[in-house]
Simulated assay, not measured.
Amino acid sequence: MLVLTRRIGERVLIGDDIELTIVEIKGDSVRLGIQAPRETRIQRAEIVAAVESENRAAVQSPAATQDALQRALNGRRDPAAPAD
């Protein structure tokens, strides 16, 4: 891991098309400005980890939960079906 020291307003260039700017330093928090191509996905690591964790939990849900969900879905009326 490369560790750099930067001051407010200073920039870090990543490759040819990504630029990080130190916008604000307040206590132990740093605000970054990120300029990158639109197609570059930028995400906070803790959000990605939380989504991955929730996805794993959903895949491993017990069969009873899946059965209850299926019963609930089967019990729903089709809004396009003719009324009785």
Score class of each variant (00 low, 15 high):
residue 1 M to E: 13
residue 2 L to D: 13
residue 2 L to G: 05
residue 2 L to V: 12
residue 4 L to M: 07
residue 4 L to T: 10
residue 5 T to R: 09
residue 6 R to A: 11
residue 6 R to N: 02
residue 6 R to F: 03
residue 7 R to Q: 11
residue 7 R to D: 11
residue 7 R to V: 07
residue 8 I to M: 05
residue 9 G to N: 04
residue 9 G to P: 06
residue 9 G to S: 04
residue 10 E to M: 05
residue 12 V to R: 05
residue 12 V to D: 03
residue 13 L to F: 15
residue 14 I to F: 03
residue 15 G to A: 04
residue 17 D to G: 10
residue 18 I to N: 01
residue 19 E to M: 13
residue 20 L to W: 00
residue 20 L to V: 02
residue 20 L to N: 00
residue 23 V to L: 04
residue 24 E to M: 06
residue 25 I to A: 04
residue 26 K to Q: 14
residue 27 G to I: 01
residue 28 D to G: 10
residue 30 V to Q: 05
residue 31 R to T: 15
residue 31 R to E: 12
residue 31 R to P: 04
residue 32 L to F: 00
residue 32 L to V: 02
residue 33 G to T: 05
residue 34 I to A: 01
residue 35 Q to F: 08
residue 35 Q to T: 14
residue 35 Q to G: 09
residue 35 Q to I: 08
residue 36 A to E: 00
residue 36 A to M: 04
residue 36 A to K: 01
residue 39 E to Q: 09
residue 40 T to S: 14
residue 41 R to A: 14
residue 42 I to E: 01
residue 42 I to N: 02
residue 43 Q to R: 12
residue 46 E to L: 06
residue 46 E to F: 05
residue 46 E to W: 00
residue 47 I to Q: 12
residue 47 I to K: 11
residue 47 I to W: 08
residue 48 V to Y: 02
residue 50 A to T: 07
residue 50 A to P: 00
residue 51 V to M: 06
residue 52 E to F: 03
residue 53 S to E: 15
residue 53 S to V: 01
residue 53 S to H: 10
residue 53 S to T: 10
residue 54 E to C: 07
residue 54 E to K: 10
residue 55 N to D: 06
residue 55 N to C: 05
residue 55 N to L: 13
residue 57 A to R: 13
residue 58 A to Q: 09
residue 58 A to N: 10
residue 60 Q to G: 03
residue 63 A to C: 00
residue 63 A to F: 08
residue 65 T to G: 14
residue 65 T to A: 15
residue 66 Q to S: 12
residue 67 D to R: 11
residue 68 A to D: 08
residue 68 A to T: 03
residue 69 L to R: 14
residue 69 L to M: 14
residue 69 L to H: 13
residue 70 Q to F: 09
residue 70 Q to V: 11
residue 71 R to K: 13
residue 72 A to R: 07
residue 74 N to W: 06
residue 75 G to I: 09
residue 76 R to N: 07
residue 76 R to T: 07
residue 76 R to L: 15
residue 77 R to F: 05
residue 77 R to M: 11
residue 78 D to M: 05
residue 78 D to G: 03
residue 78 D to T: 03
residue 79 P to H: 04
residue 79 P to M: 02
residue 81 A to C: 08
residue 82 P to E: 05
residue 83 A to I: 15
residue 83 A to W: 14
residue 84 D to Y: 11
residue 84 D to K: 11
